[in-house]
Amino acid sequence: MKIGFYPGCSLTGSSREYNESVVALAKALDIELVEIKDWNCCGATAAHVMNEELSLSLPARIMAMAEEQGLTEVVVPCAACYNRLKVTQHELEDENKRTRVIEILKLPYRGDLKIINVLQMLEAYGAENIKTRVTRPFAHKVACYYGCLLVRPHSILKFDRVEDPQSMDTLIKGIGGTTLDWAFKTECCGAGFSVSRTDLVAKLSGNILKDAADRSAEAVIVACPLCQSNLDMRRGAINKTLKNPIDIPVIYITQAIGLALGIGAKELGLKRHFVTVEL
């Protein structure tokens, strides 16, 4: 099984462990990841907030490059990148916008690339192998946290069900885990305010962690580097807002499954988290 791969900037920098776990897990599941050549940043929230054409052109270049490379399906582990790519693809169904963007890029763009997130990749190509290759069942009670960008806007992404998504829960149950029915599955963590409004991130991420902790989650499982870094790297700031500090780790779904398949903690990048992971 061969599939296109767009890591995005976070995965090469502050969220390296996500990249490491995606790559390690893909290998263990016989999925060959083909990285898009000379890929650029998707523009993230910054481009989206500052300029519409820029916010369409940057993701369009990535997809145009992938098309040129002959890829038909691309997995995008970063929820923010996944969202930007999917939304751009949808926006460029508008003929005028598409013409304008092609003019800026000076690259052909068809718009028929299939963009999937990591959960979809695991559901589609990993489910069977995961089932048979679990060596160390993930016997933990966890809170699956989906955030915003993976599931909204539902009308465009058409992924999972609204308000109470299940795909990550299903994957965790598949490796022997227990998932919580909790209240903050799709509430915002503060996203791109990590640097500019750390105070708000601390408040919002604090609400999320508190609900998970109140329901005695052993870990929070995520599929988005923004969510992970806000809930993990900002733990110091978060704990300052809370009466009782919270020490539950925040790990990627790929790390959780990797552990169940017996992949080493180092290989999965578990040592890179701020909050110590002992699972």
Binding site: T12, G13, S15, L54, L58, R61, M233, K271, R272, F274
Partner: peptide
């Protein structure tokens, strides 16, 4: 510092090859 120690920060930027295209995209949009 912890970010650096955990290997989360690159000291030098990663650069793409076709940086001219970036310049063009920015020039024509924002």
């Amino acid at each position: 510092p912890s970010m650096y120690l955990k290997g989360k920060l690159h000291l030098l930027p990663e650069k793409i090859k076709d940086r001219r295209s970036m310049k063009r995209i920015f020039a024509q949009t924002i």
